[in-house]
Design a protein around this nucleic acid. Sequence first.
DNA 1: ATAAAATCTCAAGCGCACTTGAGATCAAGC
DNA 2: GCTTGATCTCAAGTGCGCTTGAGATTTTAT
Lengths: 149, 149
Amino acid sequence: MALLSIGELAARTGLSVPAIRHYEAMGLITPLRNAGGHRRYARADIRRLSFVRIAQGLGFPLARLAEVLAGLPQGRPPGREDWARISTGLRAEIDERIARLEALRDKLDGCIGCGCLSLDKCALWNPGDVAARHGAGPRWLMGDRHEPG
Amino acid sequence: MALLSIGELAARTGLSVPAIRHYEAMGLITPLRNAGGHRRYARADIRRLSFVRIAQGLGFPLARLAEVLAGLPQGRPPGREDWARISTGLRAEIDERIARLEALRDKLDGCIGCGCLSLDKCALWNPGDVAARHGAGPRWLMGDRHEPG
DNA sequence: ATAAAATCTCAAGCGCACTTGAGATCAAGC
DNA sequence: GCTTGATCTCAAGTGCGCTTGAGATTTTAT
């Protein structure tokens, strides 16, 4: 049993079968096919999907992960250095996301505690008074998460 | 200018006008209406929407925020204690989210660094070997974020 | 050999958080 | 008074990340 069926891969990763097919459509994984046209996965693909789930849980959209995973070797199974390379690429972004979350939490604490409660004016809640600029888009404070497209 | 029009509120909060109307439909805010049927907002509503944006940025769905905001007084403008009360309610959930993110980051670091690379078996990546249980749903590691519904 | 289970390919639907558009009404400036 | 801009409602569309369903084919077990 060198290669896995999609059902086996689903069982190993905890993903649903349609979800795995969806990831394929999004370019995250590219299985082989057997004579009958059924998908056949290498063991390394379990790792690949585990990575996807974790990175996705950290807030990365599938499209970004497709880019990152494109950095893994094709043909040869990826080794330690390969995973380390693409992971370090994400580390900076991960740290940034966590930092942003912590900053927001602290702002929340700080402003509730400070008693000013003028959230529309308070520098903590509205750093740089962006709201007064031109009221264009809600980009302040939020970073790029779930930006209205 | 005791009350704000929706356009003014949009300018003050950085939100779009349709977004504010959407929040109303979701039960997050309930403006008064003038004689002509136009929405009129109190100053405290700026705070209310600022709170919504921040909490939303922290990962809370609008439905949850509607619940939380229902804890604010009606008629009387909310005071420091009101905001403090509903914020502390969220604090635990916020801390939990941050902790989860940090844990995932550390797991990522740890397993890339540890050299085992057997993500499907490694206790760090797959605590409790949940994948082998019955392959039902992808609930391990992820918490409740963006759970397939 | 055959019945049952797994897989295949489309296509459509869903939940969330909005955006966009149409057509009508209200408000404000000149 | 009249035009212009803001606002109204309702409906439909968007992007993401899948799920669900239909109908056909392949694989596996007996």
